Simulated assay, not measured.
Amino acid sequence: MNRATISDKFGAEMEALTAGTRYEISSDSDDPTPILEGYIREIMYSMYVDAHSKELAIRYQRQIEEHFSELYEFSYGVSPYDSEYRQSSQTERVALMIVDEKARYTKQIEKLFAKNNRFYAALKVVDPDDRELLLDYFERNMLVEYEVLRSALKRNLKKLENFYQSELRKAEFQNEEISNSIEGTIHIREPISSEEKRKKRLDRLRKSMSGGN
């Protein structure tokens, strides 16, 4: 399982959930998604990905432990050598590469756990009466009728939109701080408006739910 698999799973679930309703999703349809429905599905997708990030992080942890165990075994079998300039041995270089690779994977796993924490933070802004329903669907994988789920999200749409927009601004600010702390040439790019970002996310979401077409 990876992020693409989660997106595909969400698209399949949405198609099954909406079947037989007036919100039915069909990969054969070229009809545009109504604006309000698009906003609701965008929030659904964000919460779905965040809720399933913990499962993905744990899966990565198991795979990475096996992967690095094999790499360490391989590194012990590499014959060391020293040049006349006292360069590091091949064994040491392989070990350093493993450490760097492990750090990258560790950071990726931390981000996935952070996304899962974001899911619970999002639930805190939701009305208490709707919280259990959203937990049933997003976390407990229980079957919830689409119109019931949609109604709960619609009631909390503004709160959830504000929450995710705030999280996005926070992430952008943190990235900007990191970029400013790095010495070197700064490449200035035209900022992308929030509306443009929303449209791009909706386009990706539509492609995911229509099988990439």
Rank of each mutant, 00 (worst) to 15 (best):
Y137G: 03
R118K: 15
A114P: 00
K154W: 07
N175W: 01
A122N: 06
L153F: 10
V144F: 05
A121R: 15
Y137S: 01
R189W: 07
R169G: 05
N162Q: 13
V144H: 03
V99H: 10
V148Y: 00
D130K: 07
L149H: 09
R150Y: 11
R131Y: 06
K102M: 14
R131M: 10
I188M: 13
E110L: 08
E183V: 13
F138Q: 00
S179R: 15
K115H: 12
S166H: 11
D127T: 12
S181F: 07
S166E: 08
Q165I: 04
V126G: 06
L168G: 07
Y164S: 05
E139F: 05
E172G: 01
F173A: 12
I178G: 01
K111P: 00
I188Q: 13
S179M: 14
L123D: 06
D136F: 01
K102C: 10
K102D: 07
A122C: 06
L134V: 01
E172S: 09
V99K: 14
F113T: 02
Q174Y: 11
L133R: 08
Q108A: 12
L168P: 00
A121E: 15
L153H: 04
K102S: 15
K115A: 08
T185E: 15
S179W: 09
L143T: 13
Y164K: 07
F173S: 14
D127S: 15
E101P: 00
V99G: 01
F119T: 00
N162Y: 07
G184Q: 13
L112W: 08
S151C: 04
L157T: 03
R131K: 12
K158T: 09
L160V: 06
I188N: 09
T185M: 11
K158A: 13
R118S: 15
E101C: 00
N116W: 13
K111Y: 14
R155K: 12
L133A: 07
N180G: 14
R118M: 14
M142Q: 14
E167S: 10
E177Y: 02
P128S: 12
K107I: 03
I188Y: 08
E183I: 06
N175R: 15
V148L: 12
K159I: 02
M142Y: 10
E145S: 12
E161L: 15
N162G: 09
